[in-house]
Design a protein around this nucleic acid. Structure first.
Lengths: 75, 75
DNA sequence: CGTGAATGTAAAATATACTTTACATCAAAG
DNA sequence: CTTTGATGTAAAGTATATTTTACATTCACG
Protein backbone atom coordinates (compact mmCIF):
# COMPACT_ATOMS: atom_id res chain seq x y z
CA UNK A 1 0.00 0.00 0.00
CA UNK A 2 1.05 3.52 -0.61
CA UNK A 3 2.99 2.61 -3.73
CA UNK A 4 4.51 5.54 -5.52
CA UNK A 5 4.10 4.79 -9.21
CA UNK A 6 1.62 7.03 -10.88
CA UNK A 7 1.22 7.81 -14.54
CA UNK A 8 -0.31 10.58 -16.56
CA UNK A 9 -1.51 10.32 -20.11
CA UNK A 10 -3.10 13.08 -22.12
CA UNK A 11 -5.65 13.37 -24.88
CA UNK A 12 -4.37 16.64 -26.25
CA UNK A 13 -3.93 15.48 -29.81
CA UNK A 14 -7.36 13.87 -29.96
CA UNK A 15 -9.12 16.89 -28.49
CA UNK A 16 -7.10 19.37 -30.53
CA UNK A 17 -8.07 17.65 -33.77
CA UNK A 18 -11.65 16.91 -32.76
CA UNK A 19 -12.68 20.22 -31.26
CA UNK A 20 -10.42 22.75 -32.93
CA UNK A 21 -8.61 23.26 -36.17
CA UNK A 22 -5.42 24.32 -34.46
CA UNK A 23 -2.09 23.04 -35.68
CA UNK A 24 0.53 22.12 -33.13
CA UNK A 25 2.25 25.41 -33.89
CA UNK A 26 -0.95 27.38 -33.46
CA UNK A 27 -1.75 25.68 -30.18
CA UNK A 28 1.79 26.31 -28.99
CA UNK A 29 1.46 29.99 -29.74
CA UNK A 30 -1.89 30.27 -27.99
CA UNK A 31 -0.66 28.63 -24.83
CA UNK A 32 2.62 30.51 -24.83
CA UNK A 33 4.88 27.55 -25.43
CA UNK A 34 6.97 26.31 -28.31
CA UNK A 35 6.03 23.81 -30.95
CA UNK A 36 8.62 21.40 -29.61
CA UNK A 37 6.95 21.35 -26.24
CA UNK A 38 3.57 20.54 -27.75
CA UNK A 39 5.09 17.80 -29.88
CA UNK A 40 6.83 16.23 -26.90
CA UNK A 41 3.79 16.45 -24.64
CA UNK A 42 1.41 15.07 -27.27
CA UNK A 43 3.87 12.23 -27.86
CA UNK A 44 3.71 11.47 -24.10
CA UNK A 45 7.43 12.06 -23.77
CA UNK A 46 6.88 13.95 -20.55
CA UNK A 47 4.07 15.64 -18.67
CA UNK A 48 3.81 19.41 -18.91
CA UNK A 49 4.05 21.69 -15.91
CA UNK A 50 0.83 22.31 -14.02
CA UNK A 51 0.63 25.81 -15.41
CA UNK A 52 1.06 24.70 -19.01
CA UNK A 53 -1.44 21.90 -18.46
CA UNK A 54 -3.99 24.44 -17.25
CA UNK A 55 -3.32 26.72 -20.22
CA UNK A 56 -3.70 23.89 -22.73
CA UNK A 57 -6.93 22.74 -21.10
CA UNK A 58 -8.18 26.31 -21.11
CA UNK A 59 -7.47 26.82 -24.80
CA UNK A 60 -8.94 23.46 -25.75
CA UNK A 61 -12.01 24.02 -23.60
CA UNK A 62 -11.57 20.86 -21.56
CA UNK A 63 -11.27 20.23 -17.87
CA UNK A 64 -7.70 19.54 -16.87
CA UNK A 65 -8.61 16.23 -15.26
CA UNK A 66 -10.35 15.11 -18.41
CA UNK A 67 -7.57 16.18 -20.73
CA UNK A 68 -4.95 14.62 -18.47
CA UNK A 69 -5.74 11.19 -17.09
CA UNK A 70 -4.12 10.44 -13.79
CA UNK A 71 -3.60 6.82 -12.79
CA UNK A 72 -2.75 6.28 -9.15
CA UNK A 73 -1.59 2.89 -8.02
CA UNK A 74 -4.59 0.64 -7.48
CA UNK A 75 -2.86 -2.11 -5.45
CA UNK B 1 -5.35 38.81 -26.90
CA UNK B 2 -3.27 35.80 -26.13
CA UNK B 3 -1.46 37.42 -23.22
CA UNK B 4 0.88 35.09 -21.42
CA UNK B 5 0.52 35.91 -17.74
CA UNK B 6 -1.28 33.24 -15.82
CA UNK B 7 -1.14 32.45 -12.15
CA UNK B 8 -1.89 29.45 -10.01
CA UNK B 9 -2.73 29.52 -6.36
CA UNK B 10 -3.51 26.50 -4.22
CA UNK B 11 -5.63 25.73 -1.21
CA UNK B 12 -3.59 22.82 -0.01
CA UNK B 13 -3.00 24.09 3.50
CA UNK B 14 -6.65 24.96 4.02
CA UNK B 15 -7.91 21.63 2.72
CA UNK B 16 -5.23 19.64 4.51
CA UNK B 17 -6.18 21.18 7.85
CA UNK B 18 -9.91 21.16 7.23
CA UNK B 19 -10.41 17.70 5.82
CA UNK B 20 -7.51 15.70 7.22
CA UNK B 21 -5.29 15.61 10.26
CA UNK B 22 -2.16 15.20 8.21
CA UNK B 23 0.95 17.15 9.08
CA UNK B 24 3.04 18.56 6.25
CA UNK B 25 5.47 15.70 6.79
CA UNK B 26 2.70 13.10 6.69
CA UNK B 27 1.23 14.56 3.53
CA UNK B 28 4.67 14.65 1.96
CA UNK B 29 5.17 10.99 2.71
CA UNK B 30 1.78 10.00 1.34
CA UNK B 31 2.31 11.82 -1.94
CA UNK B 32 5.89 10.64 -2.29
CA UNK B 33 7.56 14.00 -1.91
CA UNK B 34 9.64 15.68 0.73
CA UNK B 35 8.50 17.96 3.48
CA UNK B 36 10.39 20.83 1.90
CA UNK B 37 8.40 20.50 -1.28
CA UNK B 38 5.10 20.63 0.59
CA UNK B 39 6.25 23.65 2.57
CA UNK B 40 7.31 25.49 -0.58
CA UNK B 41 4.16 24.64 -2.49
CA UNK B 42 1.84 25.54 0.40
CA UNK B 43 3.72 28.83 0.74
CA UNK B 44 3.02 29.48 -2.96
CA UNK B 45 6.72 29.66 -3.71
CA UNK B 46 6.20 27.66 -6.86
CA UNK B 47 3.63 25.39 -8.45
CA UNK B 48 4.14 21.65 -8.21
CA UNK B 49 4.52 19.45 -11.26
CA UNK B 50 1.32 18.16 -12.80
CA UNK B 51 1.98 14.71 -11.41
CA UNK B 52 2.56 15.94 -7.88
CA UNK B 53 -0.49 18.16 -8.14
CA UNK B 54 -2.61 15.14 -9.08
CA UNK B 55 -1.16 13.08 -6.22
CA UNK B 56 -1.84 15.80 -3.67
CA UNK B 57 -5.38 16.26 -4.93
CA UNK B 58 -5.88 12.50 -4.81
CA UNK B 59 -4.69 12.19 -1.22
CA UNK B 60 -6.70 15.19 -0.09
CA UNK B 61 -9.82 14.00 -1.92
CA UNK B 62 -10.24 17.16 -3.94
CA UNK B 63 -10.45 17.79 -7.63
CA UNK B 64 -7.24 19.18 -9.03
CA UNK B 65 -8.96 22.21 -10.49
CA UNK B 66 -10.55 22.99 -7.16
CA UNK B 67 -7.39 22.54 -5.16
CA UNK B 68 -5.38 24.59 -7.66
CA UNK B 69 -6.98 27.77 -8.91
CA UNK B 70 -5.91 28.80 -12.36
CA UNK B 71 -6.21 32.44 -13.39
CA UNK B 72 -5.85 33.06 -17.11
CA UNK B 73 -5.39 36.57 -18.38
CA UNK B 74 -8.74 38.28 -18.70
CA UNK B 75 -7.68 41.03 -21.18
C1' DC C 1 7.77 18.95 -60.60
C1' DG C 2 8.30 22.54 -56.89
C1' DT C 3 6.63 25.05 -52.93
C1' DG C 4 4.75 25.53 -48.46
C1' DA C 5 2.30 23.91 -44.29
C1' DA C 6 2.26 20.46 -40.81
C1' DT C 7 4.55 17.04 -38.28
C1' DG C 8 8.57 14.78 -36.58
C1' DT C 9 13.58 13.90 -34.53
C1' DA C 10 17.75 15.44 -32.23
C1' DA C 11 20.94 17.89 -29.26
C1' DA C 12 22.55 21.70 -26.38
C1' DA C 13 21.30 25.33 -23.27
C1' DT C 14 18.32 27.42 -19.82
C1' DA C 15 14.58 27.52 -16.31
C1' DT C 16 12.14 25.44 -12.84
C1' DA C 17 10.81 21.73 -9.63
C1' DC C 18 12.48 18.68 -6.24
C1' DT C 19 15.76 16.63 -2.92
C1' DT C 20 19.04 16.63 0.75
C1' DT C 21 21.01 18.47 4.71
C1' DA C 22 21.26 21.53 8.36
C1' DC C 23 19.62 24.68 11.59
C1' DA C 24 15.77 27.82 13.98
C1' DT C 25 11.28 28.78 16.26
C1' DC C 26 7.14 27.76 18.68
C1' DA C 27 3.59 25.31 21.19
C1' DA C 28 2.16 21.27 23.74
C1' DA C 29 3.34 17.88 27.12
C1' DG C 30 6.06 15.40 30.72
C1' DC D 1 12.59 23.53 32.54
C1' DT D 2 13.32 19.98 28.86
C1' DT D 3 11.79 17.29 25.24
C1' DT D 4 9.20 16.44 21.15
C1' DG D 5 6.37 17.35 17.04
C1' DA D 6 5.18 20.66 13.68
C1' DT D 7 6.50 24.43 10.93
C1' DG D 8 9.81 27.43 8.82
C1' DT D 9 14.31 29.25 6.27
C1' DA D 10 18.43 28.57 3.52
C1' DA D 11 21.69 26.73 0.25
C1' DA D 12 23.71 23.30 -2.86
C1' DG D 13 22.88 19.64 -5.89
C1' DT D 14 19.97 16.68 -8.98
C1' DA D 15 16.05 15.86 -12.05
C1' DT D 16 12.87 17.35 -15.26
C1' DA D 17 10.47 20.68 -18.31
C1' DT D 18 11.07 24.12 -21.82
C1' DT D 19 13.49 26.70 -25.33
C1' DT D 20 16.32 27.30 -29.32
C1' DT D 21 18.17 25.83 -33.51
C1' DA D 22 18.59 22.83 -37.22
C1' DC D 23 17.26 19.41 -40.36
C1' DA D 24 13.93 15.43 -42.38
C1' DT D 25 9.42 13.76 -44.02
C1' DT D 26 4.86 13.82 -45.75
C1' DC D 27 1.00 15.71 -48.03
C1' DA D 28 -1.96 19.06 -50.43
C1' DC D 29 -1.68 22.40 -54.09
C1' DG D 30 -0.33 25.41 -58.00
Amino acid sequence: MGGKKTTIQNHIKRVRLARTDLSQAALAEQVGATRQTIIAVEAQKYAPSLELAFRIAHVLGERIDELFVFSPEWN
